[in-house]
Design a protein around this nucleic acid. Structure first.
Lengths: 179, 179
DNA sequence: TATTGTTATACTCTATAACTATA
DNA sequence: TATAGTTATAGAGTATAACAATA
């Protein structure tokens, strides 16, 4: 992390800026990898489910959580789109959640091909317990942070995720200009 | 997570702080989920491998990258520990990388049970191409950010990952104090 | 004919168990 | 007896293909 003067930086032109950004990203890359591991692997989900007494598969928990955060019944296709997975995968999880009484399928009045997936009272309560457990852990990890740092983290993380998502989507359209 | 002292005066106690942090985390949670998806799923790795003309499996790429970032031959057990996976998984990936000539196994002079895994020139070049592609994409996504924001992101992300990792590890030792 | 969802199947990634060789 | 690694096998998670019902 070499400190630099903003004026100096921009005076050197875009190529130099790019190089500086790459230096910084290079330093953060291992942390991003680590964060990805903690979020996906690392049994974070399993532990939160255990702590909140929710006993379903991890993918099913994702579906239930997605449903809970939407505050509205969703179609299978919509759930799949939001989770960035394919339809059949969601069907399987919805089947399991239904078996356990955590969701129900109701008729979609607007389209008889589709059905709406809706959390039961029990399902909503389970999702709420799970989410509060997880959020509590994250919040605990931020103990000792200044208000400013916490706000900055939220702001920058959101912006970074959006920008990264947008840039990767753009790569699909303009396939890789040579570097 | 119910605060024991319901009525707080203007002075903010720890319980109130906790609640504030949870509010902020709740807002960032979807973004963290999204970021986790982008990093792990979303074909980011596959696309970077394609763009850098590296043709191995995704887990094998992780091993090769880990080796490249260590700048030193590593034992299978050490790679597994750093990747947080089990030994046999690494063995499989190392086998494939060896078949493709990207790594070699050399004798460990200090322990004849173990062998050291080392990237070949070709393997190191492939890892370097891959890493530069990925870092380039991330850096591009940060175009238009102020120097301050970029530095803050790096700093806060690193700290967050460390604190989160530490907190989750602590949960293993003091299993969930009842609330 | 296109779209929503389901069923059946296959593939990828990672873990556990059993074993070998060296310490 | 304990440790490093490998081989064989099993499981979780997700995708693709083929199909049904409705639009």
């Amino acid at each position: 992390m070499s400190p630099q003067q903003p004026e100096e930086t921009s005076a050197r032109g875009p190529a130099r800026d790019q190089e500086l950004r790459e230096q910084e990203v290079l330093a953060v890359l291992p942390r991003l990898t680590q964060l990805g591991n903690v979020l996906n692997r690392g049994r974070l989900t399993e532990r939160a489910m255990e702590a909140s007494a929710v006993h379903v598969d991890r993918p099913a928990m994702s579906v239930l959580l997605m449903l809970h955060m939407s505050d509205q019944p969703l179609r299978v296709g919509e759930i799949a789109a939001r989770m960035q997975v394919v339809g059949p995968h969601v069907t399987r999880q919805v089947n399991e959640l239904q078996r356990r009484g955590l969701i129900v399928r109701v008729a979609d009045p607007e389209d008889r091909r589709a059905r709406l997936v809706e959390a039961t009272a029990e399902g909503a309560a389970a999702a709420e317990r799970y989410m509060r457990t997880l959020v509590g852990w994250f919040a605990d990890a931020l103990t000792g942070w200044s208000d400013q740092d916490r706000q900055d983290l939220g702001r920058l993380l959101g912006r970074f995720t959006d920008d990264l998502t947008a840039h990767l989507a753009a790569l699909d359209d303009h396939p890789a200009p040579e570097e």
